[in-house]
Computed example of a mutant assay.
Amino acid sequence: MKKLAISKGYNRIVLNVSKGNVKAFSFYSRHCFNVQTKQANLSVTTDDGAEKMVRII
């Protein structure tokens, strides 16, 4: 996924993770994803209440 994002000129990968999904948060955190913050100019949650996790590449 990282190679594809880089080849298309993207500088980050954004995932939607359901609130309360501790296993997903743990897994993606181990792979350098962080919970999205408001400072990054993106909304923090989606319409369905999922939280965004971001990895800068």
Rank of each mutant, 00 (worst) to 15 (best):
L42A: 06
F25A: 12
V22Y: 05
F27Q: 04
S18H: 13
N21C: 04
R55N: 07
A5V: 11
F27D: 06
A50Q: 06
V22W: 04
T45R: 10
L42H: 10
A24K: 02
K23M: 07
F33P: 09
S29H: 07
V14D: 03
K8I: 10
T46M: 01
E51C: 13
A24F: 01
T37Y: 11
V14R: 04
V35E: 14
N34R: 14
V17M: 00
Y28H: 04
G20Y: 00
S7D: 15
K2S: 13
R55P: 06
K23I: 07
R30Q: 11
L42M: 10
V17E: 00
V14M: 03
N16C: 03
N11H: 10
A5C: 14
E51V: 15
R30W: 05
K19D: 03
V35P: 14
R55K: 15
N11K: 09
A40Y: 10
G49C: 00
V35D: 12
L15W: 03
R30V: 05
M1S: 14
V35K: 14
K8F: 13
N41R: 15
L15H: 03
I13D: 02
G20L: 01
K8M: 14
K52D: 05
S29D: 07
R12D: 01
F33Q: 10
K38M: 03
V17Y: 01
S7N: 15
A40G: 09
T46V: 01
V54N: 03
A24W: 01
Y10E: 05
K38E: 12
